[in-house]
Design a protein around this nucleic acid. Structure first.
Lengths: 232, 232
DNA sequence: CCAAAAGTGTTATCGCTACACCCATGA
DNA sequence: TCATGGGTGTAGCGATAACACTTTTGG
């Protein structure tokens, strides 16, 4: 009982890390942000980005700190993704990892800020071998993304504020890896009444131009609450 | 670098606990298994059952150990349920908790074995105040159970091997807290083709008797994989 | 005027919902 | 014989899936 405030005599503390699986979407498809590891073991290899949880911060703020310090982004959609707790998963020490999965809106700016720290966006279908069990974590994140996309509208997190319906369709097609009928897609997404059509058009991808839409936050939230079976 | 095999200098280890949220189902409804806490602080108060993760065991096996040592049950359906990592959640020490949610089949035997350790089954609608953030964990477990029940067949975990359709319907009614039409329920569940009708009847609840069914494991697994929107 | 992407309707089918009565049996 | 829970069918409606052509406009 001589170890400060702890009354849990005999319990052995363990290193706890958070790892961020950062996904983004742009015209080329779904991307994963990876980093060259800065410490040993496995220094220099590709890895998701993580950090040990510090005594004075919550697990959640550790994850936010990691994301912010490597991308400059704050208030990002993040969600815990289980835990990895095998005894020998990390040869450097016994470490329990709590991965978070983050969805970010890809614009040109974000990509630049990250290129500074030995970072790179990888196409989701061409992920290199990663250290430890990180490939597993990425696979879990992808599975979770697909699950999520099915049961709730997604897009607020992965699309810019204004987007076109073809863009949204492309996002779903990328996630499901499957072509969708554009008439039915439009019908279904519009019938949810979570989109507001703006007066502007995006002419960057066609001569005709596609109308821009934005999510109606209130209705979007209602849909998330209620749950939707968005099989396409 | 004098602390053994760790190459993670400066990282501060933290106590990690697992907590088991144990749910069961019987003729009276959905139940939660709670225990009187054996250690300080909060000794004697109602709590889910937990333990610190030991250096030589994985997180998962810690959860299995806790469940086994308090109920005698092995090979139970258990699933991690996020994590609780606020700095001051436990006044005894900085502890990160990794709750697991377990579903067990309630028979008379199980109840007896647990009554020895200051344990009690509580109706899910009458949970007493629990220590720390355990009420939150229980609420999360319930929410997860409802979510699960909607998106995949459930029942393998909560029902005995042989069960009747009225029993299964009652399980869903309890989970959703909502009455269901028995014709439609039957139609839907049978159309999934995951049930096999046995030649026997259970006569314990009616003079006529209800046919016993069992799940067809293979088809059940397929359904779980594929996902179902089981809104009733 | 043409290439390229955006946008638009209809029909057939399927699954869901709502709803009420007969059946089997033990006491 | 009667009380109790178990078991069954159908019709209407709404959602989904399949399917091809017109519109716009910059070059």
């Amino acid at each position: 009982m001589s170890r400060g405030r702890s009354s849990y005599v005999g319990a052995v503390p363990i290193l706890v890390a958070v790892d961020c699986i950062i996904l983004g979407f742009d015209h080329e498809g779904l991307k994963l942000l990876l980093f060259r590891r800065k410490i040993k073991p496995y220094q220099g290899e590709w890895s998701t980005i993580g950090s040990f949880v510090r005594p004075e911060e919550s697990v959640e703020s550790a994850a936010a700190r990691v994301l912010e310090s490597h991308t400059g982004l704050e208030n990002i959609f993040m969600e815990p993704l289980g835990h990895y707790g095998a005894v020998d998963r990390d040869p450097g020490a016994r470490v329990i990892s709590l991965p978070y999965f983050a969805l970010i809106r890809l614009g040109k700016e974000e990509i630049n800020t990250t290129l500074t720290h030995q970072a790179n966006w990888f196409d989701i279908n061409a992920i290199p071998p990663l250290i430890l069990d990180h490939n597993q974590m990425v696979a879990a994140a992808l599975k979770e993304l697909r699950r999520k996309a099915r049961y709730r509208p997604i897009g607020f997190e992965l699309l810019p504020e204004k987007f076109t319906i073809p863009q949204l369709q492309q996002l779903y097609e990328t996630i499901y890896n499957k072509a969708l009928d554009n008439r039915n897609f439009r019908k279904k997404i519009l019938s949810m009444k979570i989109l507001e059509r703006l007066p502007e058009k995006d002419k960057s991808t066609s001569r005709k131009g596609a109308f821009l839409y934005s999510f109606i936050p209130k209705r979007y939230e209602q849909m998330v609450e209620k749950g939707v079976d968005f099989v396409l």
